[in-house]
Design a protein around this nucleic acid. Structure first.
Lengths: 198, 198
DNA sequence: TCCACATTGTTCATTAAACGACAAAAAAAC
DNA sequence: GTTTTTTTGTCGTTTAATGAACAATGTGGA
């Protein structure tokens, strides 16, 4: 409710941002377990003691990073329907989908953090964040009660993640706009019938 | 001689770097005279008072930026012959020329600062810096005394600047390595004779 | 295995940056 | 023209970051 009661010292935010950026860089270069506190602070030219003024260990710093990314991802996701009271998927402009722009803008970040070998479990947290947004902020009208809402949302979110994973596997060779259009097509596509290959 | 007697506080260097980066960005966006102190500090999230702790006005900050760039340029230039006692232009590897890598690495910086419309007089300072390095650190053996050394060096340095200006006009479409090779060819080229078009 | 060496967590006095305020000057808006 | 609004210097107080030290604990190499 209350938007951050007391405002924070510029120095604190700057220090934390620098430390986060440093760790993100290092994760992209070497194994998380082999990264030292000394390394994190030295890279962005901070005193080692300053680290301990904000975090107890590197996993706490990593949590901060993950929290930020979840927030960024869900906010970009929310862009599509904030300031609206309803959304018609058949008439939605692809330009109102911002999630691919967001991922594209933070390319390096997502490339390292979404790599399941490097950051196991991060993907699940993203899914959880988006699911929470949908559950709390969206109402599905004329919804088929027979379909479990949890199953439905989970599958939808994973479908989106799947698109993004493919996208960055292909090294962003499609534009965010093209991906947005693809997403719309995907949401509006309902297979009528199929034939089986002989 | 003495390598920086007392070492400086990390905070000071960080603050100054941030302010410099901020002004460089702003110069690329708008006229220097229309940039305010408030704007410079707000962009990098510093307190306005902190600016006055280091600089009296924006031209002093700009001088700092220019000094840095001269230093960076001349150092990159020096790379070619430091740790050597002589250089044979006929046998010099293009990989030992670092100036184009340096410019390429600081692309945006040079694009704005070398624009004579935006930063008049900056080019002359670069030339002066490089000339100083050559005069103080290089000895030209078997030099033709009839050719004024000032004239010679000046023309050489301007030739280099000319290459770079063309390079960034063409938006870095050649690689630093290619440019280094071109520079070597240029230095070793001595026209024997020409014929005149009828 | 032992040894040199880097990292860790913690402390404390010192210093730089933040904050908020202020009157005066400059720009922008009316 | 005059009235808002912004920017400018400057200052005292509070707070965060620094540097340096320390013993304790890894860690890698001969």
């Amino acid at each position: 409710m209350s938007p951050g009661r007391k405002k924070i010292d510029k120095r604190v935010t700057r220090t934390k941002e620098a430390l986060k950026a440093s760790l993100v860089e290092l994760i992209g270069e070497k194994d998380f377990s082999s990264i030292t506190i000394t390394e994190i602070t030295r890279r962005v030219d901070f005193n080692r003691g300053t680290f301990y003024a904000h975090y107890t260990d590197k996993e706490e710093l990593l949590n901060d990073i993950i929290t930020d990314m979840i927030k960024g991802f869900t906010n970009a996701f929310r862009e599509t329907f904030k300031d609206r009271d309803f959304v018609d998927f058949n008439q939605l402009a692809s330009s109102s989908i911002k999630i691919f722009d967001h991922v594209s803008l933070n390319e390096q970040m997502y490339k390292t953090m979404l790599n399941p070998h490097i950051m196991p479990g991060f993907l699940e947290q993203i899914v959880g964040g988006v699911k929470k947004v949908i559950m709390e902020e969206c109402i599905y009208h004329d919804y088929d009660q027979a379909l479990d809402i949890n199953v439905y949302i989970h599958s939808r979110v994973y479908a989106l993640i799947g698109m993004i994973m493919y996208w960055l596997q292909e090294d962003f060779k499609y534009s965010p706009r093209y991906m947005s259009e693809q997403l719309l097509l995907l949401m509006n596509y309902k297979p009528k019938h199929i034939t089986i290959k002989p």
